[in-house]
């Protein structure tokens, strides 16, 4: 076994997913203790340009597989290649973002290699020579620490925005190694037949700012001021379960225990009472602002700043003020 760390660089249409660079940053930090190299694994079609980016962000080595069979993320060819690279090079750790794709690939690779995969880590640190991962359980109501005591490589998926994104340094140098896919197209049963991209939305998991609406918005049209404020701040739009279940906004926007877990710099909760299930999805936000008519709403226990009042007055006023101040 080597002391190298593999990092899977997730890309969609050539765009790298945020937590991939965060994982490179985490790997760099861990390699100071481990002493091995940080190896980026980039799979796709027409993705050669990303190899240099990976080196700039902190990779020492890049395994680059550029092939039509890898154009779309599919579990079968990606797992086969990742597991084979791990068998050949025997890294100590494999890191990747805890995105939809990463949370499929990590455990599949772990089963292939008969090793442990720790899901959705928010912190990683060495204690007595053992890598200890912290992760939320029960929707963040509790935390736990986990190790992979014996098996190698140990696989960890990293929650978006839990680790700092490194500054790219274009002067860094590294080695780029071309690798070939393991599976041929005829050996891959799944076929991707279409992709409907979400239009005009900011991805909640990656968003630095989220503006969310709850029962207090009163109806589908009540989300208009929320969206306007979000546009002003280049923020993502979130929603509570109450608003989603009422059919006012699609499920993709739901934040909470049965929705997405988010951790933005700023979370503005509008007309959200702050049920424990909603808090579970957003409590790790850096700064929380609550705008709610009810001064007793539990959201005010969690928020740093609160406005007690009608969101239909304060949200548009806030958007106006921000337009002036941000020069938008």
């Amino acid at each position: 076994m080597s002391n190298d760390i593999f990092v899977w660089i997730e890309q969609f249409n050539g765009q790298v997913a945020g937590p991939s660079w965060e994982a490179i940053g985490a790997a760099r930090t861990l390699s100071q203790t481990l002493g091995g190299q940080v190896c980026a694994c980039i799979f796709g079609q027409g993705v050669e340009a990303l190899a240099k980016d990976a080196i700039a962000y902190g990779a020492d080595k890049v395994f680059l597989a550029d092939d039509p069979t890898l154009a779309d993320f599919r579990l079968e060819p990606y797992t086969a290649l990742m597991a084979e690279l791990a068998r050949q090079h025997q890294p100590a750790l494999i890191l990747m973002g805890a995105t939809a794709r990463g949370r499929d690939l990590g455990p599949a690779v772990a089963v292939d290699l008969e090793t442990g995969c720790v899901a959705d880590c928010t912190a990683l640190e060495f204690q007595d020579g053992q890598l200890v991962a912290t992760r939320p359980i029960y929707a963040g109501k509790l935390l736990c620490t986990c190790t992979v005591p014996e098996r190698r490589p140990a696989v960890f998926t990293l929650r978006s925005r839990a680790f700092p994104k490194p500054e790219p340094d274009p002067s860094r140098t590294g080695e780029i190694i071309q690798v070939a896919p393991i599976l041929k197209e005829e050996d891959i049963p799944s076929k991707v037949t279409g992709f409907q991209e979400t239009v005009g939305g900011v991805n909640l998991a990656d968003a630095a700012i989220i503006v969310s609406g709850g029962r207090g918005v009163g109806g589908p049209e009540g989300f208009e001021p929320i969206r306007e404020l979000a546009r002003t701040l280049k923020a993502a739009v979130g929603a509570s379960r109450a608003a989603v279940d009422a059919g006012w906004i699609p499920y993709e926007h739901q934040v909470g225990q049965t929705g997405k877990t988010v951790s933005p710099d700023l979370y503005i909760a509008c007309g959200i009472s702050g049920a424990i299930q909603h808090q579970a999805g957003m409590r790790t936000s850096k700064v929380i602002v609550a705008i709610n008519k009810d001064p007793e709403a539990p959201i005010f226990q969690l928020a740093r700043y609160g406005i007690v009042g009608d969101l239909f007055k304060y949200v548009p006023a806030l958007a106006e003020e921000l337009k002036k101040r941000l020069g938008a």
């Binding site: 969609f12 997913a17 939809a100 991707v192 037949t193 279409g194 992709f195 409907q196 979400t198 991805n203």
Partner: peptide
């Protein structure tokens, strides 16, 4: 997925 719906 994060960016939309993949049809498989």
């Amino acid at each position: 997925l994060e960016q939309g719906r993949q049809v498989v």
